[in-house]
Simulated assay, not measured.
Amino acid sequence: MAAGLGVLAPSAAAEAGRRVHPGDSIQDAVNYARPGDIITVMPGTYYENVLITKRLTLRGFGARTVIKPPVTAVAPVAPVAPVAPVAPVAPPAPGASAAPAAPGAAKVPTAAAAPSGRALACSQADTGICVMGTAEQPVVGVDIRSLTVSGFKRNGIWASYTDRLSVQRVISEKNGTWGIAQERSTRGLFRDNTARDNVESGLFIANTVDREGGATDTLGAVIRRNTLTGNRIGVTVRRVRNLSVYGNTLTGNCGGIFVVGDEGEPGAGDMTIRNNRIHENNKFCKGNSRLPDIQGVGIVLTGAEQTVVRSNDIRGNVGASPLSGGILLFKSFVGATNTDNVIRDNVVRDNKPADLANQGTGTGNRFVNNRCASSVPAGMC
């Protein structure tokens, strides 16, 4: 018996990893973790930002583990457009102190110091969790799960230069730009998350946000079984290739799914969008310099190629925007065309002004066996 227990004890300790309790710093645990460690964040509210630059697992208890912006005073940062990269923020002013916590609230830790080069690329004061590699050394195998990230000035979770990032069962809500976002990365998995009431996209995957350029290969990124509601756009995939978006539920956003390309080479596309439930995305969002007003949008492809949109259920998306309707191939503002896309086997009902619409001068686009009532031009149902 004693010998058996002696063998089991080290394994159990290894599985337990590091634990963070209310009043502790998540960032301190990350800083001291070894690659491959598991950090378990116990139920409570944590007022801090977290920067991850090594392989590890960060997991909590879903809605019971909440990360919110720190209340430590920081120097102001200049505002940026939503599509720009997050800007660096100055460190806390000397002598600044945290505001007192409410009775019974978790202790509010001060922000931890982080490696300067990567921290500058992701303003921690504005983002809940940053996962940051470099072009020369992407961070591989980070796993974030069962946490809530709420109320940050820009993003709930932001990742750059990652490979095999996994974000699962995360709630990202009420953030000022994106709920969960990734650029310059490959083989990401985003599954069973809830992104709600974020100012821009609930889920956002892009080649890069700080410059123009051709689409990059995600090497098979997956956006699966997420619930996206109350955002400007549920899912945006911009200037990327080779990924799948399936089994998601999108409702109550201004728009459902946007596939965005431009005149760069290679073009955006070569992806599959299937088995999504996209209902009543009828919230109104004012337009900007890149897009008109958004309301009542199911799926929009603009500047996309070789993308398959199939077996989706798209209903009740109604609006008066140029983008409104069920499934729309939209003319790009920069002249990029939709080419060789296949729209098939979808149920597209009660969307206005039309269930299906094909605009622009693209070629090779096919609409096959869709169950719908109206199309522009007529005859595609």
Rank of each mutant, 00 (worst) to 15 (best):
T251V: 07
I314W: 10
D28W: 09
N193A: 08
R224D: 15
A73P: 03
G267S: 14
G287T: 13
R164K: 11
V89Y: 04
S374P: 07
P138A: 02
T53W: 01
A159K: 06
N248R: 08
V20R: 13
D126S: 10
G247F: 02
L301R: 14
A125P: 13
G255W: 13
P94W: 11
A111V: 15
I343W: 04
A3I: 10
E183H: 00
V131G: 05
G269P: 12
T148S: 05
R164T: 14
R310W: 09
F284I: 00
D126I: 04
N242W: 04
S201E: 03
T45H: 02
G287I: 04
T148L: 00
N288H: 14
V347Y: 07
R349K: 12
D293T: 01
T307V: 14
D126F: 05
I26A: 09
T272W: 11
V309W: 14
A106L: 05
R371K: 09
P92Y: 10
G298M: 13
V142Q: 06
S289M: 09
R191K: 11
L219R: 14
T72C: 07
D143S: 11
D197Q: 01
V260C: 07
G213N: 05
A106K: 03
A268V: 09
C285E: 02
D345G: 02
K286C: 00
G325I: 02
G17R: 09
A119Y: 03
K153Y: 15
I205G: 04
T186E: 13
A195P: 04
A63S: 03
T216R: 04
N365D: 02
N198L: 03
G360M: 09
A90S: 11
P88V: 01
K107F: 11
L147V: 11
G176W: 10
T307E: 10
I223Y: 01
S172K: 05
V139E: 09
S160Q: 11
G316D: 14
N369S: 08
I171C: 00
Y47A: 13
G156S: 07
I278N: 13
C381S: 09
V318F: 09
M271H: 08
N248F: 06
A3D: 08
N281Q: 05
N275M: 13
V71S: 15
G156K: 01
T45M: 00
D345W: 06
N253H: 00
R290N: 08
A112R: 15
G220Y: 11
C130K: 06
A73S: 10
L8F: 01
E305C: 13
D28I: 08
V139H: 05
R19I: 09
S172P: 04
A268K: 07
R145V: 08
S324Q: 11
P103H: 03
G133W: 06
V347C: 03
A105I: 01
S150I: 01
I157Y: 04
R238M: 14
E212W: 02
P100V: 00
